[in-house]
Computed example of a mutant assay.
Amino acid sequence: MTLGRVRPRPHATRAAIGALAATGLLLTGCTSDPPAPGPSSPSASSTSTPAAPSPQPTSAVRGAPAELQQLIERVYAGSDLGRDANAATAKALAERTAAGTQAVPAGAKATIGSWFGTPVAVVTAGDDVHLAVGPKWKLVGGWWPSLGLDDAVVGGGPRWVLALGSDARRGQAIDRARADTLQVVGIDGKGGGGVMGIARDLWVPLSTGGKGKINSAMSLGGPQAQLRTVRGATGLPIEGYALIGFYGFVDLVDDQGGIPIVVPETVDASHARIVIKKGEQTLSGKEALAYARERKTLPDGDFGRSRHQGELLLAAAVKAKLAGPLAIPGALTSFSKVGKSDLSAAEMLTFAAALYRLNPTKVGRDVAAGPFGWAGSQSIVVLGNDARRLFTSFEDGNLR
């Protein structure tokens, strides 16, 4: 039996867009500040009443420590940021078309979090967004339409990150077990991207030596060995990895309030004794884990499981987009409590911001599959031409 490239189905794409709309309504109704009352519509006899003055800019940045606020003020003053900005951000701000000294726009707000002990911050000021890393605050990206800058600075593109899920049980180190989940998340730097699942039993050269199932590399040499193995198999220069275990995944999903998703078909997660019903819903941590791990009751087995994992990643990305960039530091903090990564704070912050800016209709999803075969007594998935073509098509950071 040969299973080649698994293409997204049209109804799955419509479901993702439906989830985007439904979740947007939920977030608007539950988390947005109520609109400020505006002036009543003038009657015919009062049309000459002067309009209320527009709010004036302020230098205050709510929630920002003094050093970060001063850095944001320097951006709007047109100051040379020197070492307080990375090269890409400094270059972009030097090309601003809005000249002269400005105050920080009214309503500016900061949220602070951490990425494995390194402070991270997102500051919004009107439609402008600033991305900063501490402890000595440095701008590492953002976007600034009020300054006449059209392009965002979020690390460029294409970029890829390897999302790993460990199958470690309680008491086991998550970075020395097999990889239960292998998903390559890509962005093209132009508003599009892709999520590519990799079949766990794909037979490839291992970075630790010899050949084996692709997911065995982590148990043999840790997540760095897994990353090198996936780089070698796909030919993609993946930046780094983000690793999480079963129990950390459950905690992370619950800490973030669940994952809103539209499930295309009912799934009987027999291993967990949980039924995930078809339709729009918000999955708890346990339900999301069951959905991500079930394979025995799926018609395409492990390939279907990889597809479900990609669906969860896309749903989480949609939720993050709807929550807005100020939610990014909190999400990074939550992951840092339960996961592992070799990505720096600047790399992860800009990648997360780039995911926020994705257009959901320009994000492809696919699974690197192949025909079944044997290596001695082991049942394997053969790395064939279909998977190789998929790797090649992902070289621009997008799956179409």
Score class of each variant (00 low, 15 high):
252 L>S: 03
246 F>C: 03
273 R>V: 04
237 P>H: 03
209 G>I: 08
215 N>H: 09
260 P>L: 07
277 K>F: 13
216 S>F: 09
201 D>K: 09
243 L>F: 01
228 R>T: 01
254 D>E: 12
264 P>E: 06
253 V>R: 00
242 A>P: 01
210 G>Q: 07
232 G>A: 14
212 G>S: 07
278 K>A: 14
206 L>T: 04
253 V>D: 00
242 A>K: 09
210 G>K: 05
229 T>A: 00
202 L>G: 06
275 V>R: 15
275 V>C: 06
266 T>D: 07
225 A>M: 10
240 G>T: 05
254 D>H: 03
270 S>F: 04
232 G>F: 00
228 R>P: 00
233 A>V: 11
214 I>D: 08
227 L>G: 06
258 G>H: 13
271 H>Y: 13
201 D>G: 07
200 R>M: 09
203 W>A: 10
265 E>P: 02
229 T>S: 02
227 L>C: 05
213 K>R: 14
244 I>R: 00
271 H>N: 13
267 V>T: 07
253 V>F: 04
202 L>P: 05
208 T>S: 12
203 W>M: 12
250 V>S: 01
236 L>S: 08
255 D>W: 01
241 Y>C: 02
205 P>D: 15
198 I>G: 03
221 G>Y: 13
268 D>I: 08
237 P>N: 12
232 G>V: 00
241 Y>V: 02
214 I>P: 04
209 G>K: 08
276 I>V: 15
219 S>Y: 14
199 A>H: 12
267 V>W: 10
221 G>L: 12
247 Y>I: 01
253 V>S: 01
214 I>A: 15
258 G>S: 13
244 I>H: 04
233 A>S: 10
259 I>D: 13
232 G>Q: 12
246 F>A: 05
229 T>W: 00
264 P>T: 06
237 P>Q: 05
206 L>K: 05
270 S>M: 07
212 G>W: 02
218 M>E: 15
214 I>W: 04
238 I>L: 02
224 Q>F: 01
258 G>V: 12
276 I>Y: 11
226 Q>A: 15
261 I>S: 09
222 G>S: 13
254 D>P: 13
213 K>L: 06
262 V>W: 08
248 G>A: 03
250 V>Y: 03
277 K>S: 13
208 T>H: 04
238 I>K: 05
